[in-house]
């Protein structure tokens, strides 16, 4: 029973990481941008959620009305910058790493490096769970799973069933050919980057609901989130969700069967094996 509970808790936790990985995977897959600034946006959204909720008494979930449009704008502006200066895939990694470092420092200066935590009066979710029999589904990560499913389904529908989505896929596969067919890749790229930014806002909102904020959190996220992006398949939105659930459940199971310290060994061994044997990820898309 404990193994089942651990797998459930781990999978739900993994869905939060999948949510964080979603925007990163989309930008990498379709725009050829490895955007570490995505972690900066998640961090910033987390602190804005904290600030808005504590200063106004709003539910942290409601703050998304402010943070999602804001992060859409930030994501779009960063993409405009990449387009304006014709930044390569490699350089995007370096530039966005710089943006991440700057953001961490700004957040530290504004909110201090100390731990910040939403008070329980405005964040009842932190101690709540949904009971199904003897299983418990912790509310913060259950919310994360809900948002992850909604965003992944929406992204999959947009990518698979709309002109914009198909245009993005064409652009992701061959920029020159796509442009020759009249696809406005700049506008689509900016919109996609904005959407990725909005998804960062959702992930950022969920973090203070479930835990404690510190400015250096992105450096704890990066390894696991990249593992999920790689295992899910770069640009594969449903694969990202599956990979998040798989990594989370595996991590949880390993933690109780062996020790929590063994989890990173197992997860990153999976990544290495995937890179060797399934370089397009564990969940390849049709025709991908």
């Amino acid at each position: 029973m404990i193994e089942l509970q651990a797998a459930v808790s781990g999978a739900l936790n993994g869905s939060l990481y999948a949510l964080m990985a979603l925007g990163l995977s989309l930008a990498w897959g379709f725009l050829k941008v490895i955007n570490l600034a995505h972690f900066a946006m998640i961090l910033l959204a987390g602190y804005l959620t904290f600030e808005l909720a504590t200063s106004t008494g709003l539910s942290p979930i409601a703050t998304i009305v402010v943070t999602a449009p804001l992060m859409f704008l930030v994501g779009a502006l960063i993409q405009l910058g990449y387009e304006r200066f014709d930044v390569s895939e490699l350089n995007s990694l370096l530039i966005s790493y710089g943006l991440l470092i700057i953001t961490v420092q700004v957040v530290t200066n504004i909110w201090t490096a100390d731990f910040q935590r939403l008070p329980s009066e405005i964040n009842p979710f932190s101690a709540e769970s949904l009971a199904v029999g003897s299983l418990r589904f912790p509310m913060p990560t259950l919310l994360a799973a809900g948002f992850a499913v909604v965003l992944v389904v929406a992204a999959a529908l947009v990518l698979g069933r709309t002109y914009a989505g198909r245009a993005l896929q064409a652009f992701g596969q061959d920029r020159e050919i796509a442009s020759a067919f009249g696809i406005d890749h700049r506008l689509l790229g900016v919109l996609l980057a904005g959407a990725a930014g909005a998804s960062a806002a959702v992930a950022g909102m969920l973090f203070p609901i479930g835990g404690t904020l510190t400015p250096d959190l992105p450096f704890e996220w990066i390894g696991l989130v990249f593992a999920i992006v790689i295992l899910g398949g770069i640009g594969n939105v449903t694969g990202t969700l599956y990979a998040g659930l798989l990594v989370g459940a595996t991590s949880g199971l390993v933690a109780v069967i062996w020790t929590p310290s063994t989890s990173p060994f197992v997860v990153f061994s999976l990544v290495v094996l995937a890179l060797v044997f399934r370089p397009k990820g564990l969940f390849p898309q049709k025709g991908g």
Partner: peptide, 8 residues
């Protein structure tokens, strides 16, 4: 970070 499984 995976405190859920450890809590169990």
């Amino acid at each position: 970070e995976d405190w859920g499984s450890t809590a169990a």
